[in-house]
Structure formats: structure tokens, C-alpha cells
Amino acid sequence: MSMELSIPRFWRFKHSIYRLQAARCRSCGRVHYPPKNACPYCGSRDLEPIELPKRGKLVSYTTVYAVPEGSRQYSPIYVGLIDLGLAKVVAELTDIVDPSQLRKGVEMEAVLRKARVDRDAGLIYYVLKFRPAMGVPDVQA
């Protein structure tokens, strides 16, 4: 049996993936996501965890047709740059019924979805993706 996906690596990401846990710098006040070991803006190590809102506005987006191995069943893949106020994130977009819905400024919300599957090992990576806002996100801020 071959294993394509790592369990420990994904497990370590769980707070940033599922809670959108970011880091706020106590020195310069800026927020970045996912958390690094020091502030990417001022270099300070004095960081505190902070959860990002689960709703935000679409800044830019694309529809990917040249999809990487293991994701053909999801093709085409929508990807967006979303401004959550405290910080911007890049995430896969989902539930896109009509691609013309995607415009700059459109309200997006986080939902739990499958991203990668390791068939041999029976592993599934679930992640937060963003969809055009329908009311409440799957996950509470």
C-alpha cells in the first residue's frame, strides 16, 4: 500500500485549516495567516493566536483547468483571494453554480469540504473552502 498524504503534517495544520487560526503581532499589530514563527512584517517573535472571521470579500479569483494529480474529479478548481478584514487568505472556492457569480467584492463564507483523497490509504483531507455567501458559514467565527 502506498501512502500519498501525510497524517502528522495535516494534523499539525488543523488549527489553521479548520479555525482559520492566524497570528497577531503584539509588536506591530499586523495579522498574518497561516501563523509563522515570527512576524513576516516586523520580525517580532511576540505573536498571539487569533481566529480569522469566516466571511469576507473576494479580491481576485481564477478557474484552474491545469489541475494537479489527484484532483481531476474536482476539475475545474476555483481558487480565490479573500479579504477577511484582519488578513487575506487564498483558498479553494466551492459551490460555484455559475462562474459569473465570481466578481471582485462578492461576499464569501467558509464551508467544510473534501480536498484531497488518498485512495490506497483511505485518507481524506477535509479543508475549509469558501462559497458565495448564502447566509451562515458552516463554521462559526
Binding site: 495535516f10 495544520f13 485549516i17 481564477t62 484552474v64 491545469a66 489541475v67 494537479p68 489527484g70 484532483s71 474536482y74 478548481i77 481558487v79 487564498v90 483558498a91 479553494e92 480536498a115 484531497r116 483531507y125 479543508v127
Partner: peptide, 8 residues
């Protein structure tokens, strides 16, 4: 953990 590929 996403499928964004090289060009997104």
C-alpha cells in the same frame, strides 16, 4: 492541502 496547482 489544496489543489491549486502551479498557475492559480
Amino acid at each position: 492541502y489544496y489543489n491549486v496547482g502551479f498557475a492559480a
